[in-house]
């Protein structure tokens, strides 16, 4: 049984956020929902300023605080390492979001139709309806509603129903069909790698072995499955610049 992990090569990451976009298109996430978010940091005053980029997917921790606190078991961790949310069992208490030290959880504050950029696009416009046939978002990925894994649960995000939690799923619908997560697939400089860390000869394992890989917030004891090579962990003197329009 594979155990999936992701490695981010910060020596290569351009901070271009193509991974953020690929994730949003693949998973149809709503406005302000960044399952993958890329920090752009500035640190230090002119002229000693240093910049750094930090892609932040869900860390799919082995000792996951979110799985521990979930009152109904809607958030669970699979043998292959992926931490998933079952939207049919989630009661929307948002406890997982507050237990998570990385801030990777997003709650569906509004109905799916309203969260799909409807402040600009009116999906009911007859011209648009003529083309989209009333589906919103018109680019809806059918895989998101299917059941995945041996446990057979709708864990690919479903249709982002109002009132349930969601977060990066390592693109469970893609991984189970043998392809890579959308962010890994799209990175123009192969800064993101993904693979089976339980196989010591897999490219991911070798890459981690050959470089000093570190993890985010190791002191929190969450044992994340996302490793970083190059750069260094961000400190609180870092200031995030060029933030996306993230408030819904």
């Amino acid at each position: 049984m594979a155990k999936y992990a992701m490695v981010v090569d910060l020596n290569r990451c351009q901070g271009c956020r193509a991974c953020t976009e690929a994730c949003k298109i693949e998973n149809n996430t709503g406005q302000g929902m960044f399952w993958m978010h890329v920090f752009r940091f500035e640190d230090g005053a002119f002229p000693e300023t240093r910049m750094s980029f930090l892609p932040r997917p869900c860390q799919h921790c082995d000792n996951a605080p979110c799985v521990k606190v979930c009152p109904t078991g809607a958030r669970f961790k699979r043998e292959d390492g992926i931490v998933l949310t079952d939207p049919d069992r989630c009661i929307g208490c948002r406890y997982c979001e507050l237990a998570c030290p990385y801030g990777v959880n997003y709650f569906n504050w509004q109905k799916p139709k309203d969260s799909q950029y409807s402040d600009v696009i009116s999906w009911d416009d007859p011209d648009i309806q003529a083309i989209t046939g009333g589906a919103y978002p018109p680019y809806k990925n059918p895989d998101l509603d299917k059941e995945w894994g041996p446990e057979g649960r709708r864990t690919a995000g479903g249709n982002h129903a109002k009132g349930v939690m969601e977060k990066c799923t390592f693109c469970v619908q893609r991984v189970e069909q043998g392809s890579l997560p959308a962010c890994v697939d799209t990175c123009p400089v192969t800064a993101l790698r993904f693979g089976d860390i339980s196989d010591s000869e897999s490219p991911v394992s070798r890459f981690i072995r050959e470089n000093e890989a570190w993890s985010l917030l190791e002191e929190a004891g969450t044992k994340p499955s996302v490793f970083y090579v190059g750069g260094k962990p961000p400190s609180h003197s870092y200031k995030e610049v060029e933030r996306p329009k993230a408030r819904v």
Binding site: D62, N63, A64, V67, K68, C70, G73, R75, F76, K77, R78, E79, V83, G149, P150, E151
Partner: peptide, 13 residues
Amino acid sequence: APWGADTVANSDP
């Protein structure tokens, strides 16, 4: 749900 590692089984009653 039984105590123990965060697994699928331990998330269901």
